[in-house]
Simulated assay, not measured.
Amino acid sequence: MVHVLNEYTSLVDQVSEESTKCTGLLRITTSVTFGEQVLAPKLPKFMSLYPDIQLDLELNNRKVDLVEESFDLAIRVGSTEVQDFVATQICQFPMVLCATPEYIKQHGQPECVRDLNTHVWLIDKKMPINDWVDDKDIDQWDALFTSAPISVNSPNILKTLVKSGAGVALIPKFLVEEELADGTLIQLMKDAIKQPLSVHVIYPENKYIPEKSRVFINFLKQQYGDNPVEPQTQGNRLLNTLI
């Protein structure tokens, strides 16, 4: 018990010491959906821990140039080609294939990728399907994406369409957890989606990381319960927003 109390006291002292050192403006950019649904609920706690840090959070779904636009950090999902950035993973979210019970009653429940050919497929065009499915099925998934009657660039709109019974869609689970729990939506083909959705914080490779940025990254890791991942240079890969 004494050991636990000593560790707790040490942690409190560390946070207190960091709080006194962490000051200034911290500019962060992330996508609208992630910012509103996942990040925003965590910010009041960060503000209470580090009251001298002023947060400037910009939500948008465009590709942001961190250096030119003077952002300290970006929170991104997915990947695209760019150079000289470092990425630190903070969490992962499952992807789920889902539809309404009424839609499934009318169209039947798919058991494999081939069965989806008879369904109305709704897609978020910024989500590359090859990130989450088996390579052996990729041609069939690609064909579904190509033939989709509706494509959008917002998972929130996709969620609205699915809830209205318009079809089947692949959506980040954090957006539909309540609907899955209360039966508004049904998860389909659970074994078909192999990889979770990874979320990273990025910053320029050669830029000194100020204490305010470091404590924010560590805070996110702790809040989302992900195992700490050491920053790694991504070469010519920079994580880009998908949600």
Rank of each mutant, 00 (worst) to 15 (best):
R214V: 15
V176W: 00
L55S: 04
Q14H: 12
I193A: 03
W132H: 14
I75G: 04
Q92C: 14
L197A: 04
K159Y: 01
I193R: 02
L57Q: 06
K212F: 06
C112Y: 09
E69C: 09
E205L: 12
P210K: 15
S198D: 13
Y208L: 14
L170Y: 01
A192P: 02
N6C: 10
T33G: 05
F71E: 04
L39M: 06
S79C: 07
L55C: 07
I104R: 02
A87H: 11
K45V: 15
V64T: 15
P128S: 09
L185D: 00
F174R: 04
Y224V: 07
P196Y: 04
V201D: 00
P94W: 12
A99T: 04
S151P: 01
T241Q: 08
K207H: 11
Y208V: 15
V215T: 12
V168P: 00
L97R: 03
Y224Q: 07
K190F: 00
A74V: 06
H200E: 11
Y8T: 14
Q222M: 13
I186P: 02
Q89M: 10
S19H: 07
Q232R: 14
K190Y: 02
E81A: 13
L116Y: 08
D56R: 10
N153M: 05
D56W: 08
C98W: 03
G78F: 06
G35T: 04
D182T: 04
E205W: 06
V229C: 08
Q92I: 11
P149R: 00
T160Y: 02
L26N: 01
I90S: 00
L25Y: 08
Q89W: 10
Q187A: 05
P110G: 06
N130F: 15
R62E: 11
T118P: 03
V152K: 01
Q222W: 11
I129P: 03
T160H: 03
Q222R: 14
F216M: 11
Q14M: 14
E205S: 13
L144A: 02
W121L: 06
A99Q: 04
L11D: 10
V113M: 06
L180A: 01
M127T: 13
